[in-house]
Design a protein around this nucleic acid. Structure first.
Lengths: 130, 130
DNA sequence: CCGCATCCATTTTGATACTG
DNA sequence: CAGTATCAAAATGGATGCGG
């Protein structure tokens, strides 16, 4: 897929739309956590950290809708619901991990660039304000 | 919050934060477009399609901040500003393309899963309502 | 031509309370 | 324990007008 061939509008829109799903704040973390194996709702909630009940529910629904996660309900008391990556979800996990690796490898550079940028912006603001 | 004694969690947060940057709606498209070479502001705006001036500005600034894009200003009249991927940006482009490839390869499955899910939800709603 | 600032509508998110 | 409903807060996106 060379960039010269990337000018098909419909494909671009689809890709963007799906990247939004995959790239959103919580989906990635949930997928990664599920990469460790089957997990329950509150287990997931604990492991992801910082996610609200509501968001976890929505995220899981979205992933389930896209066929990346399966939801198994055991009608016991108390109720028990287990989430698990599908085959598709597992294949996505690999790609997500690749992206994660890139971030980890380059995070130092990014952080530094960010620091430098903010510093420069701060200088501009100061001279501008004064 | 220095990750001196907390190894994994801090990394996860960083990764997530950076994934948010990379995964947002416009950044991906802008990076892909810049993968074709140096571009000017309005050129970029045209090629991305559907992006507002504001969003393009914000997206470019974000990418610049993270050291993924360089902004070169030619103080001519009229002004001329060129954007270009840095080395870091180019390496990201590869990973982004990999993710894009995954989406393209599996988009049929996702769409089908989505359709099935929505259909099932529709049935539930209907029987529930009726 | 580039792009920033402001206002406004839409969307997203989080906290809380309640049900099975 | 798992999940829904509701409301308020916040982030986001778009349109417009101004300034370099």
């Amino acid at each position: 897929m060379t960039p010269s061939h990337m000018h098909v509008p419909a494909d671009c829109r689809t890709v963007t739309e799906l990247l939004s799903r995959v790239g959103d704040k919580w989906s990635v973390q949930v997928v990664v956590q599920l990469g460790e194996g089957t997990k329950r709702f509150n287990e997931l909630r604990r492991d992801v950290g910082g996610i609200s009940q509501r968001m976890l529910t929505l995220t899981l629904r979205g992933l389930e809708r896209d066929g990346l996660v399966t939801r198994t309900i055991y009608p016991t008391i108390p109720p028990r619901v287990e989430y698990r990556l599908t085959e598709l979800g597992c294949s996505l996990l690999k790609t997500v991990r690749a992206l994660g690796s890139w971030v980890i490898e380059n995070r130092q550079q990014i952080m530094e660039a960010r620091r430098r940028f903010d510093e420069a912006a701060g200088l501009v603001s100061r001279s501008d304000a004064a």
